[in-house]
Design a protein around this nucleic acid. Structure first.
Length: 473
DNA sequence: TCGCGGTTGAT
DNA sequence: TCAACCGCG
């Protein structure tokens, strides 16, 4: 007799109903489905903004499930214990989920799968957070890729799974288990600046993500090659926010990008390459999890990084008052919006790791606390790329000049004026919003005159290069 | 997905 | 005088 027991659908960073292989497989069995989201230790450890944004996403998913006559059951505690408890309560005979790739999730999920199987419960994980499973991309020598371009060449012509439609119906169980409430979880509690500051910049959920993708392909992609580098314009897709929580899949983006390329849109190929950068970051994290925690090139351990977070220069950097306009604009943008333009990310990272000679981990952690598009693999890879300690990284001696970058990428000063205000004028708009957002303890007032550089562009460059030349590796 | 200081060579 | 180019960190 066919198994008719319910299936637990364990949602994690896959907050969508379309192109969801685990959900599709569960629906296909004809069995009832109990969607569940768990607040475990890994969730508690998230940075302030990512945790808050995750909560919004979970709420949105719960509504989408309700529209399908289903629900999202919320529980707190150790994942295995909670799943076991729910299996007891619902009589579920299976748990399905979408695979994660960061080492902590892998460790947790491996143990969950093992234990459930021992207990006779079917435990299935599905691919879909990535287009290419990290272990399927190999060099001719059988190793993993450490350089982006060969990685791109290895995957660019692969078939990418066609996105799945959202299920029409999600069969409810006879009786629903109890659920905690999102409000009780207080996932925004660590947001010093208050969630209301960032909320207007959020594009929440699956529908919004699809709208973003549509808008990008309808117009922005044509100009993407150039516009994506100009932080004063709206030239990027902004999909990182939704990709990060699985509100949209890379497969959905990929196929849209392929269509745009066939239509001859010039920026489409670049967009596809950006999606593959995300894959590459996961590939590296999978094969070398130390990407998240240590210098990927081990000899960089010997470099005299400043690791003291309390240093005045570090504070100035975080608080957007280094006195370097491009740097401060980027950091203020991040604090207010929970995002930062990629050009600015490279510049603030170069300034922190080179001019200020600070360890990239300090920057990585600040980003982790502030970004609503935070992604463990991309964040770590990006920082190690900038610092020069990563695979396929920019060499340490490649120092961005944050002043000349302004002339190249913010010619009309639209970006720095948006975040720092116009010279001599009263602060308005987002420049003013920043001062409403920051904590009192930062001791910054709108009337303060703009600071002198904590380390100016030329001297910082010189100092960094000297340290590099004197390195003993 | 860089920047600088230097050289070259046209004007 | 200066744009273009080169070599190197």
């Amino acid at each position: 007799m066919a198994d008719t027991s319910p299936i637990l659908l364990w949602f994690r960073r896959d907050l969508r109903l379309s192109d969801h292989p685990a959900l599709t497989a569960a629906v296909k069995t004809g069995r009832s489905i109990v969607p569940v989201f768990l607040r475990d230790g890994l969730l508690d450890d998230l940075g302030a903004a990512p945790k808050w944004r995750l909560g919004l996403g979970v709420g949105c998913l719960a509504e989408a499930l309700q529209d399908k006559g289903s629900r999202l059951i919320l529980r707190s505690g150790d994942a295995l214990e909670q799943l076991t408890q729910l299996i007891d309560e619902t009589g579920a005979g299976a748990v399905y989920w979408m695979r994660a790739y960061d080492p902590q999730s892998v460790e947790r999920d491996t143990k969950v799968k093992e234990t459930l199987k021992e207990q006779g419960v079917e435990a299935r994980s599905f691919a879909g957070h990535l287009m290419f499973e990290p272990w399927t991309v190999e060099t001719k020598q059988g190793g993993f890729y450490k350089v982006y371009t060969p990685f791109w060449n290895a995957v660019k012509t692969r078939d990418v799974a066609e996105p799945l439609a959202a299920p029409g119906e999600i069969k409810a169980p006879g009786r629903w288990p109890d659920s905690e409430t999102l409000d009780d979880w207080r996932l925004g509690a660590a947001m010093d600046r208050g969630a209301d500051v960032v909320r207007p910049f959020v594009q929440l959920g699956e529908q919004a993500a699809q709208a973003r993708l549509g808008a990008f392909m309808a117009s922005k992609v044509a100009d993407y090659n150039d516009a994506r580098d100009i932080p004063g314009t709206d030239g990027t897709s902004c999909l990182s926010e939704n990709l990060s929580l699985g509100e949209i899949t890379p497969q959905q983006c990929w196929h849209a990008g392929l269509r745009a390329r066939e239509e001859g849109k010039p920026g489409a190929e670049t967009f596809l390459k950006e999606l593959v950068w995300r894959e590459f970051a996961y590939h590296l994290m999978w094969h070398t999890p130390r990407l998240l925690t240590d210098n990927w090139r081990e000899d960089w351990e010997a470099f005299p990084w400043n690791e003291d977070e309390r240093k005045a220069e570090v504070k100035a950097w975080k608080q957007g008052r280094t006195g370097i306009q491009f740097v401060d604009a980027g950091l203020r943008e991040m604090y207010v919006t929970g995002r930062m333009h990629n050009r600015a990310r490279m510049i603030v990272a170069s300034y922190l790791t080179k001019h200020l000679m600070c360890h990239w981990k300090i920057g990585m952690q600040w980003f982790e606390d502030c970004l609503i598009d935070w992604d463990p693999a991309s964040n770590a890879m990006g920082w190690q790329w900038s610092a020069g300690s990563g695979p396929d990284a920019t060499p340490y001696f490649r120092v961005f000049n944050p002043v000349t970058q302004l002339d190249r990428f913010d010619k009309d000063r639209a970006y720095v004026q948006r975040w720092l205000g116009k010279p001599g004028a009263k602060l308005t708009g987002d420049a003013a919003r920043y001062f409403d957002a920051i904590p009192k303890s930062w001791n910054m007032e709108p009337d303060d005159h703009y600071p002198e550089p904590v380390v100016n562009a030329d001297e910082g460059r010189k100092r960094a290069l000297e340290a590099y030349e004197n390195r003993d590796f």
